[in-house]
């Protein structure tokens, strides 16, 4: 068994979000979104996650976003941190 390739970042606080990234997926990006604002902002949240993954070179991942009213910059940041943690980057 290899080490887990799952990373989580963010908090369940207003204007924040909890993002979990699992890099075990073999192909494509699968995003599960839990948000009260999904009808209004679901598309924008998906795009923010996809943009962040692209910027850090992730082509395949399962991503779960628990959104608490976060804006794009927060979603992108939490996604990038979750990826780095899933990759095992040192928190320095």
């Amino acid at each position: 068994m290899g080490e887990s390739r799952i990373g989580t970042a963010g908090r369940d606080k207003p204007q924040d979000c909890l993002v979990t990234v699992d890099l075990e997926r073999k192909r494509g990006i699968n995003i599960t979104l839990n948000s009260k604002m999904e009808k209004m902002f679901g598309e924008a949240i998906h795009k923010a996650v996809e943009d962040a993954l692209k910027e850090v070179g992730v082509k395949a991942a399962d991503v779960t976003v628990d959104d608490f009213g976060s804006l794009d910059f927060t979603i992108k940041a939490r996604t990038k941190t979750a990826v780095a943690r899933a990759r095992g980057d040192e928190n320095e």
Binding site: A9, F73, A77, R78, K80, T81, A84, N91, E92
Partner: peptide, 19 residues
Amino acid sequence: AFTEKDAARDLLCEAVKVL
């Protein structure tokens, strides 16, 4: 917190790029 240094840095960078 020490365990959140990476997250704070990422959040700051994304924020200053767009806000």
